[in-house]
């Protein structure tokens, strides 16, 4: 019996299909498999960031030079980026970010709640198209729609991966 492919393999295949040759990330457990997959690929340049604003500026420079970039981050990072997102809008730079959600379905950690719940509105402030996947079967078609919105029709797009997909981390051993 063949094990089902993890959705991150499908996402990676789409990044290659749409020639997103430059991938930046701020790590998150939900992105770990995809980051490893990108790092193992000889055609993909992977840029670890210290903070998410860097990825927005990187995307702008890469697009100026003809390279497609996609940023992987956690929802907390969306809040860090707001002013830099203005540059994408002003310069009409196509942009796609894949965002793993915290402060979402089943969250244990109270400090994650404000930014997690505020993430769609924060993206909306800068006119992002916000797509969302909450089940493994929805990931690939949603990411492909995001790639098309970004690089075919020149939009700023975020695809949110919900905690129903990723699972919510619980720091305790729960007895309920």
């Amino acid at each position: 019996m063949v094990a089902a492919r993890h959705w991150s393999e499908e996402v990676f295949a789409l990044l290659r299909k749409y020639r997103a040759d430059l991938i930046s990330y701020v790590p998150d457990a939900g992105h770990a498999k995809l980051i490893d997959r990108c790092r193992a690929d000889i055609e993909t340049r992977v840029v670890p960031l210290t903070t998410e604003e860097e990825g927005v500026a990187l995307a702008t420079g890469a697009w100026l030079g003809g390279t497609r970039h996609v940023m992987l981050m956690q929802s907390s990072g969306v809040g860090n980026c707001i002013n830099m997102f203005a540059m994408l809008k002003t310069c009409q730079v196509p942009f796609l970010t894949l965002v793993t959600m915290r402060g979402d379905f089943g969250e244990f950690h109270p400090w994650q709640m404000p930014m997690g719940q505020g993430t769609p509105a924060a993206l909306g402030l800068m006119d992002f198209i916000v797509l969302r996947a909450d089940a493994a079967r929805d990931v690939a078609p949603t990411v492909e729609a995001g790639l098309r919105f970004a690089f075919n029709s020149y939009n700023r797009v975020a695809v949110l991966f919900g905690q129903r997909l990723l699972g919510a981390k619980d720091f305790r051993t729960v007895r309920e």
Binding site: L22, R45, V47, E53, E54, G55, V56, A57, L58, A59, T60, G61, A62, W63, L64, G65, G66, T67, H69, N83, M84, A86, M87, T90
Partner: peptide, 22 residues
Amino acid sequence: NFPLWGGMGAAAMVGLGLALAQ
């Protein structure tokens, strides 16, 4: 020339994106 009018803190990373792409 790409003169930034905003995005304070972005210049070096815009340069990195260009350097990698070109």
